[in-house]
Nucleic acid binder design. Structure first.
Lengths: 179, 179
DNA sequence: TATTGTTATACTCTATAACTATA
DNA sequence: TATAGTTATAGAGTATAACAATA
């Protein structure tokens, strides 16, 4: 039963690609006074934003899986590669991690030989982090895979559509700058 | 220090609106043979998709907070409101929840008087779930707030831009249908 | 044998609090 | 006092395994 739920409207999703948060659909009962008709989630841009982002994230995870990298550890490694000598605290500020939570991430990246710690001569509290050659190579490989993933994600869009989508998305997230 | 990291490029973010996963930027060193230049994350549509989705989700959480509703419980309630008599297992299939995880969600929604359980005369294993008037009203209020949130999220876009954004996003997430 | 609702449990991600050593 | 790195811990959210009742 429940074939009546189709299509399913989504706001959240699990790791398997399945979707959560269904919503109203077709055959809307005529709005009654005092019980107005609900908006359909499928009308909301946010609904499609969510689904597109879910597909992106899933593809990203898959693209990085064989490198044994997930998004946050890659973010940390990328910060080190692009900013050699950066401190852990600065990474946390830059990418919004809590200081407590970068410890285990760095421990694993260090154990894999992807970066080295060095004492900061100017401040004995801080450790300066430097990428190893292996770390740089893994980062480059990861970013290549992200690019390939993106090409697959957007395969239904033309070049100009991709540019327009990027432009519109930038306006969406930059809209909070005036908050 | 670290003013050099600007702008920060993001792939993941925490609950506070801060961002994670910075990326390369400007002044790219000339690509050397065997050490090719990395893509800039800010060039990736997925980067902006992620940031836009983050802003959307945060606004959604904020919009629902005073109703003591989060995305998944609202999804479940919405399924009941839009499909009176639905079973918990069918909700789970529709929105991608594991059966084990809907139990506590239903317990809370039930305690708040938002729906009622009724035995299914055709199958004694299943409980049919029906929304109460309170549940319907809360759902309507929640969806109104989601609509208000959307208006704020997209305030920088014109009507035609919103329509175009929705069209492009649909092409992105529907691109996985041929997989 | 398969399904429903349920309990117990584990794992990931993220949050706070508190410690130590430095500044 | 403020900050860096660290530890411990707690809370979401989501995953699996197993059970009793029913089909």
């Amino acid at each position: 039963m429940l074939y009546s739920i189709n299509p399913v409207h989504v706001l959240v999703a699990d790791d398997t690609g399945e979707l959560a948060m269904a919503a109203p659909h077709k055959t809307a009962p005529k709005p009654e006074p005092g019980e107005e008709r609900l908006e359909f989630l499928a009308d909301l841009v946010g609904y499609h934003l969510r689904r597109a982002s879910i597909r992106d994230m899933q593809g990203m995870s898959a693209a990085l899986e064989s490198l044994s990298l997930r998004a946050v550890p890659l973010s940390v490694l990328l910060m080190i590669v692009e900013n050699p000598g950066i401190s852990a605290a600065d990474i946390c500020r830059a990418i919004g991690l809590k200081r407590a939570n970068i410890v285990s991430i760095l421990a694993e990246l260090e154990q894999r030989g992807l970066f080295l710690r060095e004492a900061d001569p100017n401040d004995n509290r801080v450790q300066k982090l430097f990428p190893t050659r292996t770390g740089k190579e893994l980062t480059a490989e990861a970013l290549e895979r992200l690019k390939d993933h993106e090409d697959h994600l957007l395969c239904a869009l033309s070049g100009s559509e991709r540019a327009e989508l990027r432009r519109l998305l930038m306006k969406v997230w930059q809209g909070d700058e005036g908050d």
